[in-house]
Nucleic acid binder design. Structure first.
Lengths: 194, 194
DNA sequence: GTGGTGGGTGGCACCGAGTGCCGCTTAGCG
DNA sequence: CGCTAAGCGGCACTCGGTGCCACCCACCAC
């Protein structure tokens, strides 16, 4: 997701110490005051960088959305499934050095229910983007059931992919791509196919 | 979802006045104190019936899960898609009188992001149940990507169905069934199929 | 240099959700 | 009639999140 290139250094620092504290103390057991002072800022300032304690874990999703939209745009003529597949493969290209942090984030999202919940809110825009793109390619209405189901099913599948990837501690970046491909095969051919 | 047959009358009353107040004042603008005293109980008691202000809107989902599991169990031999389709059709059989309340709930869930988020947490068990059931029928591991993607994609599609149904004010119970069928056709045959 | 001016900062006070504790009522029962 | 147990609800507390405002400091005009 072409992460966090240029971003306020304060935000970067806060994200870092937050992941650290969450990993050692747990999410619920860490207060925003601790996060703030560990990051060397006041509590009030923390909330200027992150609307929510939850968002300090989910920081990069927005940039991911932008990247997704771009990636979709660079797939003219393709059918929706192919376009979405290519876009997700492009957007989820991680360098080896990024994988540990990704794992920590996914682990948190997986077992702090509130985080999973917040993530789905953030993913709404992804669903809309995918539905809109698919609707254009299929030449149907963006509100049509087909487009809406597509958008939601794709995002849900991608979350299953991340979950599966996270469950395999030895899986690398290539494995992630493989899972993405598998998931899109299922979506393309349907669950009744063998 | 064979709703709320035997349930503490206090809870029923609270749900009712809550939907009322949310509809008139808005969700965020209604405090738990108001809900409690409108329901004739103390604030502390409110939280004994509902773990969260959010849950007063989502009350029946758990009963829905139980019904889903039962419905799945009564589909021996069917393939996962057919079983899930039949289960959802069985579970979402609404009497005409229930539709207005359903609409109000869906409307709230749709445009209060926090509610949508909470709903997804509650739906996790549905996803697991579907994944487990499908894994058994396919004779694969419950943690396998195929089963996991299936569980999540089905739930996501059903949420798209409810959203689409809610968007059409004149749609009745039969229309809901039709949308469920459409969605399952897509899942069964895949999005690349004509 | 002096005197704005504007953005980032963070303290302070406040609100509302959620929780632990505890004393009260009341229904059921020996 | 007393005992007990369960539901109720008040009270006080924690913590996330917000509005307000005073402060610091860089930048700029004169």
């Amino acid at each position: 997701m072409t992460r966090s290139a240029r971003r306020a250094p304060v935000a970067r620092r806060l994200e870092h110490v937050a992941l650290e504290l969450f990993a050692t103390q747990g999410f619920d057991e860490t207060t925003v005051d601790e996060l703030a002072s560990a990051g060397g800022v006041g509590r009030r300032t923390f909330f200027r960088y992150f609307p929510t304690k939850l968002d300090v874990v989910l920081g990069e999703l927005d940039e991911g959305l932008a990247a997704l939209v771009v990636a979709l745009a660079t797939q003219p003529g393709a059918d929706p499934v192919a376009a979405a597949r290519a876009a997700f493969l492009a957007v989820n290209r991680y360098a080896d050095g990024e994988l540990p942090a990704l794992r920590r984030r996914l682990g948190l999202i997986e077992d702090v229910p509130e985080l999973a919940a917040r993530a789905t809110v953030r993913y709404r825009d992804w669903e809309s983007a995918l539905a809109g793109d698919a609707a254009r390619r299929w030449d149907v209405d963006a509100g049509s059931l087909r487009a809406q189901v597509f958008g939601r099913a794709v995002v849900a599948s991608m979350r299953a992919v991340f979950s599966a990837w996270h469950a395999r501690p030895e899986a690398d970046a290539a494995a992630l791509g493989g899972l993405v491909d598998e998931a899109f095969d299922l979506l393309a051919r349907g669950f009744s196919a063998r």
